[in-house]
Design a protein around this nucleic acid. Structure first.
Lengths: 156, 156
DNA sequence: TTCAAATTGCTAGTTTAGCTAGCGATATCC
DNA sequence: GGATATCGCTAGCTAAACTAGCAATTTGAA
């Protein structure tokens, strides 16, 4: 069987090596998230929800249960249970939505944020230390590359 | 609360942007895998097993059920059921191990490989088209960066 | 060489976390 | 003002993980 990613020209070879590196990197990130999930004693989806909440909070955005469901691509029913788990473990609170009385706003607790960054901190430091080995121009190229991939693969 | 990834210097800012891009890219890859899983009518773990088998086959390595369990970080019992599902759906076969009569070797069927690349092909093409926008030198930097991250995050 | 310990993949039974269907409360649109 | 849509929820079902433990086989130490 011919490898669909076999290379001929030097450029093809460079592309192939990037694609290979992407595969390995994606695996490594999956394992990193797996490790965090174990460390924090959570399941993968609940941790993904937490990450989403951290990111959205960083942008100053409020998050509804519906948005959690959409982001995780699970049903709202499953999301209700997920939020129940996160509430029971003290990670989030459900607040009333300021203008829509059907809706809720999901808010991280201070303890949850602290716990997350305590466990994420070491990994973040490792990632920083790798990035520090690259010049600003190189980092800009890398960021642009990754953003381009994201946009192409998941245009939203 | 101070953002743990807040930036001061231009370099800090470049690092921060790369980390942000990594987060978005990881999400996009997760969604890409989610899309493939839907298209191929499989669950996420089974698809991850398939990807692992494709990669290992590409390296000419034989794969045991134990190695599947280790890679996916699930129990061997769960792996037995996973392999049952993949066997039932015609994706794999369990062959006897040539020298260890306790062990098995998991082998992809031709149809499975074909199906995988049929569904992966379009995405692979998109990824190639993004990579094609970069010079060989840039691609080399990106590949080195991603490999460094992988190695740091998941030394194995 | 022999026999205890370790390893492989499996079965059985349990738990977790998803799903669909559908409900009451509220908001939105003619 | 009344039909229709949306929000988050409950109830009940299912898929896929888990732990415990087994027979067959291999490995390693006396």
């Amino acid at each position: 069987m011919t490898q669909p990613w076999s290379a001929q020209t030097p450029h093809d070879r460079a592309v192939m090596e990037v694609l290979h590196a992407i595969r390995a990197f994606t695996d490594a990130m999956d394992r990193m998230h797996g490790g965090m999930k174990d460390d924090m004693d959570m399941n993968a989806t609940d941790l993904a929800a937490l990450r989403m909440l951290i990111v959205r909070e960083g942008r100053g955005e409020a998050v509804s249960p519906h948005q959690v469901a959409d982001h995780l691509r699970i049903s709202t029913a499953s999301t209700t249970k997920l939020l129940d788990r996160l509430t029971a473990s003290g990670h989030i609170e459900r607040r009333p939505h300021p203008s829509d009385r059907r809706a809720r706003v999901v808010v991280l607790t201070d303890e949850s944020r602290a716990t997350f960054f305590r466990h994420f901190g070491e990994r973040l430091g490792q990632m920083r230390s790798v990035a520090d080995r690259y010049s600003d121009d190189e980092l800009a190229v890398i960021a642009r590359f990754l953003s381009g991939m994201s946009e192409t693969l998941d245009p939203r």
